[in-house]
Design a protein around this nucleic acid. Sequence first.
DNA 1: ATTTTCCCCTGCCGGC
DNA 2: TGCCGGCAGGGGAAAA
Length: 266
Amino acid sequence: MLPWRRIERVEIWDARLTLPDDPERVERALVGRTVRDVGRRGKYLLFDFDEGDILLMHLRMTGQLHFSPSEPEQDPPYRRARIAFADGASLLYCDLRRFGRAWTLPREVVFDGAYWRGRVGVEPLEARFTARELGRRLAGRRTAIKAALLDQSLVAGIGNIYADEALFAARIHPETEAGRVDEPGVRRLHRAIRDRLRVAIAAGGSSIDRYRDARGERGAMQTLLRVHRRRGEPCPRCGIAIQKIRVAQRGTYVCPRCQPAPGREC
DNA sequence: ATTTTCCCCTGCCGGC
DNA sequence: TGCCGGCAGGGGAAAA
């Protein structure tokens, strides 16, 4: 919905958005550019233009983009920035918790792998993400498997929801040492990651809280989640109560029977 | 180097 | 019922 639109005006109301850069500098870098392509690398959004720097965004926890094809209706809450296009369309950025960031970088930096190394790892839905590749990346890691899944530099894009869901589907306890997941376990986990992400994308994401897509639509994945945010509900596989624990400083949901704690497999 | 802790924000909810 | 600590779809910086 953005390609071929020319940016006429950029308004950044929350200066935190562009930290550590100045909002004015980012505004100047964007005005007059025509959008060529919108892409993604891990959880980073990339806006590529006819010329000049690339705009990168990370929505973090509560960032949202709202597109409207004509002059925006009313002001949504927590609006932080707006890109107004020459044809009257606009892209509004809202963010309750103000963790999201936007910044610009030269194309050659963004398209060089060095920028992403240590930041964003293999894309889980691409062909080169094989079970063998997952195993290679987990090998030798002493941290909990869930912490490893949340580590974006290993595998890109898995967040707290889908880490829980993938581990449940693979029947692996989240606190299992990453390097000690056995080979069949790695294969189950690899399959589970891809399966759960594909289902989630097809469902339009999980609108547990306030998540909406750029058109304002809710996702349906929250109804398909099997353990995440389902403490006390029956496990869909065995029926016993889902437990909530804490792993890697994140709320973690687990079936104590289907995902036996490390060291006492059933 | 890898791993863990703290912190950035605002609003909401569960538990006392 | 009302208040309040804890927690939330994340990750960077600093510390262990």
